[in-house]
Each structure stands twice: as C-alpha cells, then as structure tokens.
Computed example of a mutant assay.
Amino acid sequence: MDISLAGKVAIVTGAGPNIGSGIALALAKYGAKVACNDVDAEAARTAVRRIERNGGTAIAIPGDVTDSERVAGYVREVVETFGRVDILVNNAALLGGRGVLDESVDFFRRAVEVAALGNFLNTRCVGRYMAEHGIRGSIVAVSSSNGWSGSAGVIAYAFHKGGVNNFVRAAAMDLAPYGIRVNSFTPTAPTPDNPELIAAQGPGGVLDRPPSLRHGIGSEDGTEPWRRPARWTGERPPLVPMGTTGTPTDIGHCVAWLCSDYARLITGCDFVVDGGARAKNFAYLPAAPGELAGPLPLIPIDGTGELDGATATERG
C-alpha cells in the first residue's frame, strides 16, 4: 500500500513540538502541503522549519483557536496560499491542570474552551469550505487516553477530551452526506522523538521532570493532613503490554493513513497506537521488559536528527 497525500492540503492546530509537530511532519512526508497553527507563533514557525528541513512544504498560521474571526482568517489564508483544504487535524489543547479538589475555575474554563471551541470552530469553518467546494476531505480530532478512562490530577483535561470523543461521532453524522469523514486519534503518553524537544526536555519529555513540574501529567497540591496520594509516579513502560506507547512518528503514520483515500469509508471512529496500553485490563501485568519481543523498528520520518527518544526495541 503506497500511501500518498500528494495534492492535498492540511491544517494542523496546536502544532507544538511533540504530537502536533509529529503529525504535521508526517502529513508533509506523505506529500501534503501543511499549514501549522499554534497560539504560540514561534511554535508554529518551528514546526514549519522542521517540515522544510525534511523537504516538505508548509506555512505558519498562528492564532487562538477559540477566536472565530482568526480561525476564519487563517483558513482563508491557507486557501489563498495553497488553493484548497483537504485535511484538518484538531490537536490544539491546554495541558496541565490539577485534580477536582484543587482545579481553578479560570484554568478549567480556558482548558474546556480551547478544546470545545477549537474543535467546533475549525471543524465548522473547514467543513463548510469542503462542503461548498465538493471536497470529500478528512477531519481528525486528537483525543487522549484520559478521555476514555479515569486518571487523577487532570480533571479539566479528562472532561474536555471526553467531550472531543462524542463531538467526533456527532460531527461525523453531520458531514457524512458531503463525503467528509470525521475521526479521532487517541495518543497515550508518547515518547518524544522531535530532536528539538529532546534537546530541551530530555528523552522522556515531561516524564524526565520532577513531579511538581510535570505539566500535562497532573500533580498533587496542598499540605493538609487529610490529603491522600492520588497518583503513582513510577515508570510507565513496564505497564504497557508491548513495552512502549510509541512516539509522535507512530501517531503521524496512522493519522496520515486515516487522511488518505484508503480510509474512504472510515468515519466516526477512534484509532489508538499505544502498544496495547488502553486495551489492557487493570489486573493484567505485562511480561518483564527483558522478556518482551517488542515492536518492529520505528520507521522514521525526521531525517534531521537522531531519534533519541526511541526505546531500544524501537531502534531494533
């Protein structure tokens, strides 16, 4: 199967250095022209430079995904630059946060707004463009394992990712008459493989940081005597059946296929690439790391740096 996105144009929101950048790069490597959005203009430009270093074509379209005028503006900019839009990846989200006992109203509201309005405004704007121009495109929303199962310390994140899951199913029904497909992809704590991110944070990304600084993973708050520990902060790979949850490159390969014509009848579905982490029963203890065959070697897409974030089994 020769996956090709040649002739297609993609918009990726939240194209920051980890998952968003990985998806944007994969779409470009498979032939799409990519518009990289992020609320941080420099993050969007960094994603563009990574794509260009690897031989792809991209532009930066920075902006707040909760601003309807800005969303309409950058979609119009993409059409004016590349002539069309065939793919939308809704990845923008606010990471970090606290548990239900400690989360602030301001953070909860903003986190939900970014996910809710980000998915809604971009899907509405791009979906209308596709419908009006007869483009049978693909829209992918990025969910999280926290949207499907409970995890302490990330109440806002869990709430809005759960909402993303049903938004996808409902939007898929709305857009099916136009031949526009809407699906989701669920990452599970991927290991960074962007050389720039690894240089800044270490091979494990946020997992290399002290617990108090692990934004996006959740943290405990308060010193009251009634407090109880809510999270286990030990190693995650031994809990995963195949020993690794993969990398943004693994995610990118799957999303690229999902946006290709080979997936023409897939809509309203969720895809997971996580080494079996989400499928695992809570009582199942995987084999010891030394006894695992592990996955096949990772097929790289970034030729500009060593994939230091890959595990030994991923390197083959």
Rank of each mutant, 00 (worst) to 15 (best):
V39F: 02
E113L: 15
R98M: 13
E220C: 04
C259G: 03
A310Q: 01
E69I: 01
T123Y: 09
V142E: 08
D67V: 02
V168I: 15
D208H: 07
V48I: 04
A170Q: 14
R278F: 10
G218A: 03
R70T: 13
N37P: 07
N54H: 02
V126N: 07
V112M: 13
I198S: 00
P203N: 11
L213Y: 12
A176E: 05
T188G: 02
M242D: 07
V12T: 09
I87V: 14
P190G: 00
N119M: 13
A44C: 03
L307F: 01
P211V: 15
T57V: 14
R214Q: 15
H215L: 15
A189G: 03
Y74M: 01
L239V: 08
L121Y: 09
G16Y: 07
V48W: 01
Y284A: 14
I61T: 14
A176K: 05
A10V: 02
G97F: 06
L258E: 12
T267W: 05
G162Q: 04
A312R: 13
R209P: 02
V112R: 04
D270M: 10
L265E: 10
A287R: 14
R231Y: 11
V85I: 13
A131N: 06
V168P: 01
D302G: 00
V112S: 05
I301R: 00
P203C: 07
L121V: 06
T66P: 03
W232P: 10
G73W: 01
G147P: 01
G63H: 00
L27G: 08
P286G: 07
A199Y: 01
N165H: 10
G268C: 10
S212P: 06
D102I: 05
D38R: 01
I61W: 00
G150C: 09
L265D: 10
F282T: 09
R209H: 12
P229F: 11
Y262A: 12
M130Y: 09
D86R: 09
E235S: 13
F167T: 02
T244S: 14
